[in-house]
Write a protein that binds this DNA or RNA. Sequence first.
DNA 1: TTCACTATCATTAGCGC
DNA 2: AGCGCTAATGATAGTGA
Lengths: 235, 235
Amino acid sequence: MVKGKSTKGRQRIEMKSIEGEEARQVCFSKRRPSLFKKASELSTLCGAEVTVVTFSPGGKCFSFGHPSTSSVADRFLAVHTFDGLSMGSGRHGSQGSSGRSHEMNQQVMELQQLMETEKKRKERAVEALERESGGPVMQLLNANVGALGIHELEELRKELCTVQDMVKERSRKMLEDAMQTRRLPPQSHMHMVAMPSQVLFGAQRVGTREGLLVNSLLHGSLGGLDNYLNGQFGG
Amino acid sequence: MVKGKSTKGRQRIEMKSIEGEEARQVCFSKRRPSLFKKASELSTLCGAEVTVVTFSPGGKCFSFGHPSTSSVADRFLAVHTFDGLSMGSGRHGSQGSSGRSHEMNQQVMELQQLMETEKKRKERAVEALERESGGPVMQLLNANVGALGIHELEELRKELCTVQDMVKERSRKMLEDAMQTRRLPPQSHMHMVAMPSQVLFGAQRVGTREGLLVNSLLHGSLGGLDNYLNGQFGG
DNA sequence: TTCACTATCATTAGCGC
DNA sequence: AGCGCTAATGATAGTGA
């Protein structure tokens, strides 16, 4: 019945790389969930967008994201691919929208809604396979997709990518036109590809909804790789 | 000199979105550095690669990365874009370089090649706008894209997403069929949606090129979301 | 947004399974 | 890689500046 302390309890450790191979693994396995939990709490409590990506010492990949790793990555990309003009502050500073918390909230709400939407997209995709869809484009493609072979699928995918690029390009041009119509300052001379959406939106004060849409068109969906290509995930 | 308690000390809080606009900001400002510190400790102690990206409720972007946000992001992308050629552990599991470094190098080289390809995709897209393309699908869409308004573009984008989902779903079914044809062990009964591509490829030993393609179809492009959908810490 | 303070609450090192 | 246990360290809500 002796209540002798069965363990040494928690002890302070140096912030150096843990020597033992196994001990390091164990430490990672215990701390990683905690890190994700903290990230989750931060997003839940503060309504912030957060993503965490880790590679264990063993090489395994773990990721957390709210609303999703990709969406945060896209937004990060958006900021670091463009941005830079409106606020010259150091580091990564940049407001997704203007500054009014009202617009902000709206943006956050729409993001959450988008999240919900995306969440169900997979389900809907399956349904779409069984029924005939309404969209004109859909109708054209619907019948074919099911019959394609693996190589045809590859071709189709390539074409879809190209089409999406066209959409992106088109939306970009629309913005360009819009800017010139509303007479923009001389600095509009910069490369379109690198043109910061924040600047565009900031200058024109495009409505939140449109802003999100265009942003989505510019980076959306196929986005991920652009991250990589355009450089940054900051670092 | 009375030592009366000057504060209520720490108190437990509900894990709900904090109501007060300002209180949320404050909470974020206090917790964000802590999260980064945790991430830093994880990387230091365990030698793991870690990156964290956050957007404050005010819209500001903050990021942490070890060795750097970009390097971790690159690795993440590499894993989620193709991955799964040589090994098949569960989850996202995937050693960037588990065993044979030879296969690794091959994988890296392919990554770089794909990168180059994607890098030029944007250029090619512009060209595609001027000339008439060859693809049957392209031809159908080519004429229209240029004339659409912002709302129509949104619709088109939605449809494209749905089509891509269909392509994914189709390729998934093809894999399913292929597996049954080649008689797979009973465990193939798990949900297709949650089925790790690594397992599929590991089992069938799909050739690199095909593997890349299928993987690209499954996770590619629209990818990242799968993380979120397939469970994880979805947030 | 950040800094200080302090009384809690939460995390986790070290062990064993 | 994950679970449980215990005790000590670390993080932080509330408050004020």
